[in-house]
Amino acid sequence: MGSRGSFLESGGFSTPAKWHTVDYIEGIKVLAPKDPKASMNLPERSNTPGTSYLLYRKNGDFNQLRVFGEKRVPQFDIDYGIHNGKKSLHVHYYTDGVRGKNPNILRPGDALYEKYKVLFKETKQ
């Protein structure tokens, strides 16, 4: 798994791992920072093309899902947090490696919501 770092000749990323896998849900790695005082942000790159990483808050509530493409860069994030003054489940799409600032709200019935709903612990829609 990649961690904010440099690119290797072999095509991977090389830095000391800041994360460890604490679980798998539906084949998706649930990550936690190795340092309990570290910020709760998922890795910006992945060594495995087409993988996904999942992050829960310390209390067990859903925080973020990051889905990577075949080039190991993020395609989208699903977050549960505050946007425009309201707490919501929403998706940020990436364009050319840059995360979009204007997310789309996810609701039951939306394709992405239905695909990943088993992951959304303690989210209120």
Rank of each mutant, 00 (worst) to 15 (best):
P43A: 02
D77Q: 10
E26H: 15
K124G: 08
D96W: 02
I28K: 07
T51Q: 08
K18Q: 04
L55A: 15
F68K: 01
K86V: 13
K29G: 10
I82Q: 13
I82W: 04
Y113G: 02
V22F: 00
P33F: 05
F7R: 01
H92E: 09
E44M: 01
G81K: 04
F62I: 08
G12N: 07
F120A: 05
V91T: 07
I82E: 15
R4V: 03
L89D: 07
Y113A: 03
R72T: 06
S6I: 08
F7S: 00
E26M: 15
G100Q: 11
A38W: 01
Y93L: 12
R57A: 08
I25P: 10
L31S: 12
D77K: 08
Y24V: 08
M40C: 12
T48C: 02
F76Y: 13
L8D: 14
T48M: 03
F62P: 04
T21H: 07
K101H: 03
L42Y: 13
Y53E: 06
D23H: 11
H20C: 09
V98F: 11
R4C: 07
W19T: 08
R107A: 08
E114Q: 01
D79Q: 13
D35V: 02
D96M: 01
G50F: 06
S52K: 06
S14R: 14
G81T: 10
G12A: 06
N84M: 07
D110N: 10
G85H: 14
Y56I: 07
K86C: 08
A17T: 04
K18R: 02
K34N: 03
T123K: 09
Y80H: 13
I105K: 12
K87A: 13
T21I: 15
P74Q: 12
S3H: 04
S6L: 14
